[in-house]
Design a protein around this nucleic acid. Structure first.
Lengths: 211, 211
DNA sequence: GTCTATATAGAGATAGAC
DNA sequence: GTCTATCTCTATATAGAC
């Protein structure tokens, strides 16, 4: 049985408050961008006075970096679906499924990341140059191995990855456009399934694996 | 021979100045987002005093709407490549080529559009609901005709369009990430060609047409 | 830890001389 | 048409009472 010291309790409460603020910040940053977001609005959405937000996150930039870091971590986890696979059908298929699920459940995180990259990663270039570069190299090697083993056509793994990222994240980042073209309605369960199926089918058949 | 009245000259000069401001604004909005962009910076990039920018475009919003409208028009033109085609190989192939060229030549316009949509199209929902909806319906009909004629597999035309938009625009919107993963270097001529070839190959083979 | 009140800075926009 | 100076508003951030 765990003994909870007063410090643990304090930390737990602190983390809880931080989570509330982070969730609110993710929404506001996604909706307004870094420049358009205001600490006041984040505080309002979190249901706290503005000064409290500054108590937990000294500056707007600190808060923003945390939000970006979160979605980045979630995407890295999705890579596990990719790694344990024996071939492209399971590997790429599962990766697309995982990325699509994240686009559905975390559209705001995806938007914040997109916005950050579009503006030249002014606050998180370090992530790009270290974590993302390493992750990508590992995945490119796996795809290349599949190509060499004759499990798929000889396509440039880099552009294949870009296609997968672009398409899956589009369903989060351009959700508003997609909904507008869907008669103003969010995609329903069946439509999400159809999206996943269609994307997997085109990409897998496109790289020459039997579906 | 045209006779140029004083009014024509005035108008020509006005349009010229407006173009300079619009180009500067496109860059600044792309780099900083609507909220992060400042009229001061736009004026600096355009090489004009801030008050002059306000003379030509009364408000920041007016200027922004013009910028969005521009890229929107450029994309609509790319549709012609699509329309005159006899089948998916030429139609979709030419459309992908055209969209990729635009991503290469107008990355900033693409970013401004992406940002606008991500934030829920606060200033240009009217474009989405009228022009874009009509354009899309026309293109969906063409694809459906190709499907019905047996020229391609039976895939959902909507998701196919989303894939094409997502992938081609990714090369503009996420250019910074792509460059970082390319060793910090912009894609060279050969790499752009490879990107186009790879994307067309995967998508066309993916929808079951002979390449 | 929480909140009110405020210091400080920088934005969009405009008045008015040239 | 152009530019300087300035008005007004709103942002981030913090001081200090509770």
């Amino acid at each position: 049985m765990n003994i909870q010291t007063p410090t643990d309790k304090k930390n737990a409460k602190r983390r809880e408050k931080e989570q509330i603020i982070l969730r609110a910040a993710e929404r506001v940053f996604a909706q307004a961008g870094f420049g358009g977001a205001t600490m006041q609005l984040i505080a309002d959405v979190a249901g706290l006075p503005k000064a409290n937000v500054h108590y937990y996150f000294q500056t707007k930039e600190d808060l923003y970096r945390q939000v970006v870091s979160n979605i980045f971590g979630i995407w890295l986890e999705a890579a596990s679906a990719f790694d344990d696979a024996v071939g492209p059908v399971e590997g790429i298929g599962a990766y697309i499924d995982a990325k699509m699920e994240i686009s559905r459940s975390h559209p705001n995180g995806s938007k914040v990341w997109a916005s950050e990259v579009m503006h030249g990663a002014p606050f998180t270039q370090d992530y790009l140059e270290t974590t993302l570069v390493e992750w990508t190299q590992g995945r490119l090697a796996i795809i290349q191995r599949w190509v060499d083993a004759g499990l798929m056509d000889k396509v440039d793994p880099r552009h294949l990855l870009h296609m997968i990222w672009a398409t899956t994240q589009h369903y989060a980042d351009f959700r508003h456009q997609i909904n507008t073209l869907n008669g103003g309605q969010p995609l329903g369960e069946a439509q999400w399934e159809e999206a996943k199926t269609t994307i997997k089918r085109i990409i897998l058949q496109g790289i020459g694996v039997k579906v």
